[in-house]
Write a protein that binds this DNA or RNA. Structure first.
Lengths: 121, 121
DNA sequence: CAGTTCGTACGATAGCCCTCGTAGTACGAG
DNA sequence: CTCGTACTACGAGGGCTATCGTACGAACTG
């Protein structure tokens, strides 16, 4: 639907690292937190952009904001405002260009580990 | 070569996590430190076991010991004593079985980043 | 405008982690 | 046995980080 031009990209803007600024250690550190790893997995599962609030994390709102900031500043996700919500998307292209296969390997590993540690569903 | 039976595995033993105990977050955290990432890269480059002291790290000996312990306790490396020295080897098999492709992707990424950030040699 | 929803900013706390120096243990050589 | 080498253990300091609560701002709905 082309009618969906961004009604409000709003004045608010967020700082993202340039592709060349992304550091491997930063990405690994960002992914080494269980909370953030889960966020990335969820994000990868839907192949699209997700509102911050759809994640059912067992932490407060402030903490959630903090984790999203870490992911954004390390170059793992891209965030844009859309009205009152903030959309999140994996930076697949950039990560694949810089560290080929890394994101896929991590996601696969997380999946394997989840089933290995017993996820009934 | 069968002639190389271990002359002194010595009484000292070190605790290693079982393969099933290795956690992805732990591995990622271990690799997210520049010092440890370099150790792993060096270790991968020689395809064999390396004495702790061959690494020329810009930190004190105590700190080096600390990093090797983190790598061992997270399941990334295996360490054995041999006389006064301690040999280190990557746990390639275990990591590949648990997280296929992960180690390779990280090593490749580290290599790419090193050349991207300008390593003359 | 008033109200609601969504996310941020700030301050505070507690815990972890990297670093170090010093002292100590294990092993091999002389 | 004595010495040197290789690594560890312990304690401490300084910084980062995960967490929270509360107060605030920005945008849509009426």
């Amino acid at each position: 639907m082309p009618a969906q031009n961004r009604p409000s990209s709003s004045g608010r803007s967020l700082e993202h690292p340039d592709r060349a600024e992304i550091r491997l250690e930063g990405v690994l550190h960002a992914l080494s937190d269980p909370m953030r790893l889960q966020i990335v997995c969820d994000l990868a599962a839907v192949e699209g952009e997700l509102n911050c609030s759809v994640f059912d994390l067992p932490v407060s709102k402030s903490t959630t904001t903090h984790h999203f900031r870490v992911l954004r500043e390390s170059g793992v996700v891209r965030q844009i405002y859309r009205g009152t919500a903030k959309l999140n998307a994996l930076r697949r292209d950039d990560l694949e260009a810089l560290f080929p296969g890394l994101l896929g390997a991590v996601l696969t590993a997380a999946g394997h580990q989840a089933s290995r540690l017993g996820v009934p569903s």
